[in-house]
Design a protein around this nucleic acid. Structure first.
Lengths: 251, 251
DNA sequence: TTTTATAAATTGGCTTTACCAAAAGGACCC
DNA sequence: GGGTCCTTTTGGTAAAGCCAATTTATAAAA
């Protein structure tokens, strides 16, 4: 029996995450068989249905293939051969959002109707409510950003940004990191969202861009801190230069 | 109780598939709640764990969100985000590219390797060659823009921009308009592409952004002129304000 | 009447037990 | 060696039960 280090609302996610880590670490090579459900249940100290749920989560992601009466076999290592766009890290995703949503906010500042602004204001309040709830979701956060994208009145922009948000839940790596960030109690800060709203209200594209970039820069920071030490070092090397650039690009 | 029409090795896949169909059909709109697990178990004539497995399969795909003690809520319709908008106009598309590719160029200016620059330089020459050929394609043009996107070293950004280019051929309206623009003998101007390349060579993000925006503003203009008179008027009204904004936002 | 507590019902989370069916492994016979 | 049959292992699924979070209904209080 092993510890259940991380804790989550849903047990199967913990198990799936640990298996994912082991797959990524190469503990179970491609083609090899995972331990039997019953054994995994013992090892993780959970019931067999929970193990089944975790394995199904891996199966849906195309990581393993389950053969009746035989076992669950590794198809690929996480991150390899993913569908296009599957293999984006949380850093890449947030960097892309930083650039794209910054521009979207600027455009929205000149396009948003009073109805848009009212909707966004309501979502800021919902984000505040979500923040108070320790088990709160990020639904209002997503809705906030998509509402701004919609306010551009450009469906191509909206689709692109929505796709980035979808990747966040689709990409195993990104989902993993965001999950960790959430558990580290780093939640969307209301002030940052409010700043964006105020800039939109003022119809100030430059301010809206700056506020949105500042918000997503902060998100990028939380992602860095949510990363474990070894991964952190590598990531920091890779993103340090980028963070510098944001300063310049924002100016 | 309903039939179990399809048969599969794994029962949860049947249930997930049926739920997926119902989501696609709009039976459960975005934001609404799925029936309780116990009810679904009755309806599909399976056990509750099987229903749980099916819902987890949807959850992993980012289709629903499960809230403890409340239910499973629809996040999006399947296909949304997977294959974004058919209904995008050439103007929206180009506006999105103006914003996104401008930022990508700025990022690429600080990221591009000498190999990237060499490749891009070669593509500029190919674009020049395409311009001379009356039957030439736009392949080099596309490759030029994607090479810059790739030089950002951010796959999320690359995927988003590539998707915009794909929409150009997917969206009937956009394809039609671009076709007209081509026949009007308005082809990508080499000088504009060269300006982008020079800014990249100078590692100047602001200049790269400006050059890319200038290029795509010009494309937007050619689209306007390629439009028939009546459509033109309407489009001009709708985009005049936007063109003004670009000037401000670029500064 | 409105608001606020409180209790009951609903809903997902997870475990345990049990049995079936497919696959794999091994013993035995030819 | 090569089959054949039986046993073991492994996943597939069902059923029942209890817990915890949430929601809703209800009643009390302001």
């Amino acid at each position: 029996m092993e510890n259940q280090q991380r804790s989550s609302d849903r047990l199967y996610q913990d198990v799936a995450r640990q298996l994912l880590d082991e797959l990524a670490a190469g503990r179970y090579p491609v083609g090899s068989r995972l331990p039997a459900e019953r054994d995994l249940a013992l090892r993780f100290n959970v019931s067999r249905p929970t193990v089944r749920e975790a394995i199904i989560a891996l199966e849906v992601q195309g990581l393993v293939e389950v053969r009746i009466g035989s076992g669950a076999y590794v198809l690929r290592r996480p991150g390899e051969g993913d569908a296009p766009g599957f293999n984006v890290s949380a850093f890449e995703l947030t960097e892309a959002r930083l650039l794209f949503e910054g521009e979207a906010a600027a455009l929205a500042a000149a396009q948003a109707t009073d109805e848009d602004l009212a909707e966004i204001e309501g979502l800021v309040r919902q984000i505040a409510a979500e923040n108070l709830d320790p088990n709160g979701t990020e639904r209002a956060d997503r809705a906030f950003h998509l509402a701004i994208a919609r306010a551009t009145r450009n469906s191509a922009i909206y689709n692109a940004i929505e796709e980035l948000w979808n990747l966040r839940s689709t990409s195993p790596e990104a989902a993993l990191l965001h999950e960790k960030a959430r558990h580290a109690n780093v939640k969307p800060v209301v002030e940052e969202h409010s700043a964006v709203l105020e800039a939109l209200r003022a119809r100030d594209p430059a301010a809206a861009r700056a506020a949105m970039r500042a918000h997503l820069s902060a998100v990028l920071e939380t992602l860095l801190f949510a990363t474990e030490e070894k991964a952190l070092e590598e990531a920091r090397r890779a993103t340090q230069a980028k963070r510098d650039r944001y300063g310049r690009a924002t100016a």
